[in-house]
Amino acid sequence: MAVSQPDIDRLIDAYLSVSTYNFKDYSIKSFMRRIEKLMMDNKLDVEGLINKITTDAIFVEQSVKDITVNTTELFRDPKIWHAIRYRILEKLKDQRRINIWHAGSSTGQEVYSMMILLNEMGLLDKTNIFASDINTDVIDTAKKGEYIYRFNLDYLDNFNQVVRQNPYNFDEFKEVPYSKYFEIDKAKDIIKLNSFLRKKPVYFKHDLVNDGNIFNTKFDLILCRNVLIYFNYELQNNVFDLFHESLFRKGTLVLGVHESILGTKALKFNKKGLYYTKK
């Protein structure tokens, strides 16, 4: 089911006519792909989809949740977590308070990864953790902190690399038991994060396209990984402005490992290997 550019424009207009959801500056290819999937899953053609958007408010909410991508893992890309642990948090550890924002936190695995590291470093209690997503369903999943076990064996592998091993000294191995942070129930096929972690973060519904800094604070560290790839260059730049003004001086921004600040906004940040700091 191929969708044409004019179809895409009409669909974007349909969403704008009934909601604040604005996909105008989304990355075209993945948006097209998500729309095609939405049409297939709901057995609708373009006309049917437009009709449903403009007449069914519940479908609008549900379909926006389906369009936005929510894949994530515990400690996705271990090497960035090494940088967070040994470079970024190391510099923040003597502060009285640490403020962290996970922008586009999806189902929460990244938030839990961060809290596990903070706890290992003894910093969890003095850290404020804010997490936000456009999709309230994934926020509910994040709060529940329960994930399928079978398809996520990588979680354990990543945990070993980030928490138990020391990338700078492979002889060192810390016996951190999984049960310190989560329970594995193979019969029920779930991994469930422990309650002291589940209770900690504050979650917000937040749309990076429309909303500014709604948190009444600035941040030492903002993580926004594999979110901006769904936005075009112009919209990415708007979000980089938002992050810039939401960071404390010298605050740190972590993007996905294949994301980068392109163009003039790069002048407002220093690139330090895998992450950026505010100038």
Binding site: S27, I28, K29, S30, R33, R34, V69, T71, R76, N226, I229, Y230, G256, V257, H258, E259
Partner: peptide, 21 residues
């Protein structure tokens, strides 16, 4: 194409990535 990403091609001669399923 990077591991764990889909690779797309956009009008305007550039590449975009996606982490969808």
């Amino acid at each position: 194409a990077p591991a764990n990403y889909h690779m797309y091609f956009e009008l305007g001669n550039y590449i975009s990535l996606s982490t969808e399923e």
